[in-house]
Nucleic acid binder design. Structure first.
Lengths: 141, 141
DNA sequence: GCTTGACCTCAAGTTGACTTGAACCGCTAG
DNA sequence: CTAGCGGTTCAAGTCAACTTGAGGTCAAGC
């Protein structure tokens, strides 16, 4: 009755959408761990699904598996507040970028202007994106 | 006096932060084009900087170079409105994800709870992320 | 008792996005 | 006139993140 809570790899695959090969790979990389084995088969705690959600979200945010693993491994309590805050700001900037891009697409869907070269709204969006880039490059100099 | 407007690859590199190798690669992939050559050297219209900003933003949004190229190539006017709107919605969802993640990090920076396992705010964020994932996987079935 | 299906390992292969290296060209400053 | 800088090509190399394939285990159903 403890056993029943555990998921085999197929169940995790169905629940998370990630193929078994990826789950094994993540385990090898130390991003997730199985609760144990039944025979040779992996068994997972249901919480692994949250972790996988975090991994997928983190990947979409442009973090490498390495970075994500580090965030998991270091005790949150120990990671200096500033580092987390810095990551959060990084994300904030990325959200700004994506918002511009989304608005750009949405506008392109609606704009009646014959050419986007002439549409002031589109031009403004382009300038915003470019400015964001410039700032980013500044930092990596 | 038309000539002077054009940038050589070094200028584009300085302005965009992208190395020459990347600029040549993008050209090879058909994502950007040079305005012409002076001798064997590429010359670029300043507008290439906007295009590069869009490419970089698109990459950060998780689009492949292939996809980005397609968006550029197909005449915007021809791309059915729904496709653009659909891409925009995709971005919208991703922005939601990143916002959750950002809030998660920001919260982790401030939370006094001894363990995140016990912090209700963190738990709530995790559930949100997981739900988003589940929806996403739904679509890729 | 034998097949089938879901799992396992481990090494090798794939893909996308670049980068690196070798060999070369052409202007300009000393 | 030659050294060096900033370009050029083209083929090969690299890296992260997976995937694939061959060959094996085990439990369940016919």
């Amino acid at each position: 009755m403890e056993e029943n809570q555990l998921l085999d790899i197929g169940a995790v695959t169905r629940a998370s959408g990630l193929p078994p090969s990826t789950l094994r790979y993540y385990e090898e990389r130390g991003l997730i761990s199985s609760a144990g084995r039944r025979g040779q088969r992996r068994l997972y705690h249901p919480e692994v699904l949250q972790r996988l959600a975090m991994i997928t979200t983190g990947r979409a945010a442009g973090f490498s598996l390495e970075e994500i693993g580090t965030m998991f491994r270091e005790d949150y309590a120990k990671v200096p507040r500033e580092v987390l805050e810095q990551k959060a700001e990084e994300l904030d900037r990325q959200i700004q970028h994506l918002t511009s891009l989304r608005d750009g697409l949405r506008h392109a869907a609606e704009c009646q202007s014959p050419s986007h070269q002439q549409c002031p709204t589109f031009q403004r969006l382009l300038r915003v994106m470019q400015k964001q880039q410039a700032r980013r490059y500044q930092r990596s100099r």
